[in-house]
Design a protein around this nucleic acid. Structure first.
Lengths: 182, 182
DNA sequence: ATAATATCGGACGGATCGGTCTATTATCGC
DNA sequence: GCGATAATAGACCGATCCGTCCGATATTAT
């Protein structure tokens, strides 16, 4: 997962993967079949071990919706300790010619899962008056998703990383929007 | 440019490029040196022939700032006639290990160029009362950039393409934000 | 202990990779 | 017409690609 995350599908050779996984080449093929199936397994692992924990953090109803969304976006800038820069889903979406392949469907599932979770947070924030109610929560969630993806891309550029933090503030302001009209 | 745009750097072989460029392999190497330099030339071409025209459209002061930004975001969903899906800059940023290479600097220039142009539009929209003035125009521009990049990524997913249009509406609402407070 | 099953290192194969070389043919300035 | 330059096709190079095969060594179950 880390190898694919760092170097993408085409950029990761089976030799790279053998070296980093610590098992023999033959065992790798016996277990996963081929490179593509191995990649799908890595993508599943990414969903379970990277995305899911983030969604769990978003489901803590003891914190305000504003706080949760802000923390979610800021965690993109922080990027964790020893994790690769960016997001495997974003990377794969841009790399693989998607159409309607298995991988394409998995990517879409990841996005949909995240979107639903964020939507639930936003619905709560709308009820509490924190967020704009002039737009359906699903649309605002889509904006959060898209903005987050954009920040993931931005973070890969050399000197744009520092512009992320203030961008988060502006995004949060945008979500409040006409909520202040009430 | 189209080949790299469609298939990325690693995903494009010199043979692919020779075939699509309609010149001989030797001429290609005589003219561009190697694959990396050819890619840089393609990236320059993308800036001049794809990005620049878009920026020119954004500089038409006879149209309202709202209209310009909206059209800019919607053009990502439309994606043009026979152009590849997505954005070469976004694709390259996620693919190439950037750090401080020549390519990284070129990508950053592209982003900065676009950001400055959008910032100018937003400043105009702030003066006219269309956009939120509680945030510096640069930050709002960064949000537009990030959101646009996110839409580019989203557009590569199988069935997420249709969610883009309403997202644009929500983004535009976010830019108006507390402008309605005045 | 023995048979069955994993796991291993490492060689191997056909294909493709980026890049170079050579020899031939167009093109063009004068 | 002729020498110089540009462009061509195609063989060729070592390296690497993904994937397979093999024989040896652990591991496990009975």
């Amino acid at each position: 997962m880390i190898q694919f995350w760092e170097s993408g599908f085409e950029g990761s050779s089976m030799q790279n993967l053998v070296d980093r996984m610590g098992i023999s080449r033959q065992s790798l093929y016996d277990t996963y079949g081929n490179k593509r199936e191995l990649f799908e397994a890595a993508l599943k692992k990414y969903r379970d071990e990277v995305i899911e924990p983030k969604l769990k953090e978003l489901s803590d109803d003891s914190l305000s919706a504003t706080h949760l969304i802000r923390r979610h976006l800021e965690s993109i800038a922080d990027g964790g300790d020893r994790m690769p820069i960016g997001c495997l889903v974003v990377r794969t979406a841009t790399e693989i010619s998607v159409q309607d392949s298995d991988i394409g469907r998995m990517l879409e599932d990841c996005v949909k899962l995240t979107r639903d979770t964020i939507q639930r947070v936003i619905e709560r924030g709308q009820k509490s008056g924190e967020f704009d109610t002039s737009r359906p929560a699903g649309e605002l969630a889509a904006v959060v998703i898209a903005s987050g993806m954009g920040l993931q891309v931005m973070r890969r550029l050399p000197n744009q990383g520092r512009d992320i933090r203030p961008s988060v503030d502006a995004i949060m302001t945008g979500l409040r929007a006409s909520a202040t009209e009430h």
